[in-house]
Write a protein that binds this DNA or RNA. Structure first.
Lengths: 215, 215
DNA sequence: TAGATTGTTAATCGATTAACAATC
DNA sequence: TAGATTGTTAATCGATTAACAATC
């Protein structure tokens, strides 16, 4: 209850998984402590920024030594909510959905995709990466029965909102949306969008503007 | 040469594709003009922000009417570099790579993936979504011959840096990196990272912190 | 001890928002 | 004309960076 209630900047939340990746790697190579200076060097950031970010997870370091590595891993993972299992359902077993179902890295993040849903009869009843694919109409019932918390949306744009509605109505409070659509959800539901277009736009516009600055 | 040389904020670059999506949709439904107010409403942003973002593409609107819809589409697309064909190569034909090869939406963005590369003999020589998969060792030669501009990296983390090196040495100046690795590249090479971990971290941490603010 | 590093407080920088005149 | 909307200039807000005392 004496928790830090300051709102954490989203940029901080986005950087923490990168630090975690680096710190885990350092642990693998036998390190037992790590400083923000060292992390900053590896990811090309200012050490003070890394220190601030790490501080927001609540961990306390040791002057001169930095952070005890196991403790730091634990602190970041706990802060991100990656120490408990995050039960998820995925809707849209197309190529992107399939890629996510096969993505091994999620296990590390305690994201456990229990089931996938689709409307394609050719997919229903099969398994992808060991995960069963059900008919979309079974979604509400199964969300309630299996108490899924996170909904992953990988359907075509025109279906995204209605899938979101079904999930929210069935009690899901966190949506990971890969469809290029602005979802409307009631207050209290967290939505995180992954936009490939946004990312590609940054890449191509920077690429074409690059020359201008030199000339 | 009288171009606007102000550095464009990355958040602006990330929002422009969303506006484009919305505006194209409005065009489909028969609209001929659109105001920043209307766009703002659809994506849940302040209209002044939308107006500023749009202004940075260089288009001039009409007081009272907003922006002519075809002109706006053209302006955003040109600004993002989506009006010329962006020739790309993809390395790593795993599940994520395959999903990207199959992703139709890229055609709209003039991203044309000409070839994929992998080290798996079972994949080499085959086609995925009509795109040929070559042996990785052919990469440098083909980049030069086909003058690819964008390199898409969907390999495992431990391979990402060496693939980036090969691409950069062969002349590629834009990398779209999906591996959870901080790439080191020479000055003048644009790197855009897509980090699923970063996105998931935002989702889960917000989800678990949600309750705290209410309690 | 000396020096690297933490954590805190203040300064800077950049993005968003507000205010408002111009205009169609 | 009246009023909605643009585009510009100024104010605010929030994230990053700097400065520095505390500490192991």
């Amino acid at each position: 209850m004496s928790e830090n209630h300051n709102p954490i900047p989203v940029p901080t939340l986005r950087r923490l998984p990168m630090y975690l990746e680096i710190v885990k790697e350092l642990k693998e190579s036998g390190e037992t402590a790590v400083s923000s200076t060292a992390i900053a060097k590896i990811c090309g950031l200012e050490s003070i920024l890394v220190r601030k970010d790490i501080a927001s997870t609540g961990i306390v370091g040791q002057a001169r030594c930095g952070f005890e590595i196991n403790q730091l891993i634990d602190s970041i993972e706990t802060f991100l909510g990656w120490r408990k299992t995050n039960e998820a359902f995925l809707v849209g077993a197309g190529s992107l959905g399939t890629a996510l179902l096969k993505y091994k890295k999620f296990d590390e993040h305690s994201l456990c995709i229990h089931a996938a849903f689709d409307i394609d009869p050719a997919k229903i009843g099969k398994k992808i990466a060991g995960i069963p694919v059900f008919a979309l109409k079974k979604l509400p019932d199964l969300i309630k029965r299996m108490r899924a918390e996170i909904g992953i949306i990988t359907v075509i744009p025109s279906e995204a909102q209605s899938v979101a509605d079904i999930m929210v109505n069935a009690g899901i409070r966190a949506l990971w949306n890969f469809a290029p659509v602005v979802l409307t959800v009631p207050e209290g539901v967290v939505v995180e969008n992954v936009s490939l277009s946004a990312s590609l736009g940054v890449l191509t516009s920077k690429y074409y503007r690059k020359g201008e600055n030199n000339g």
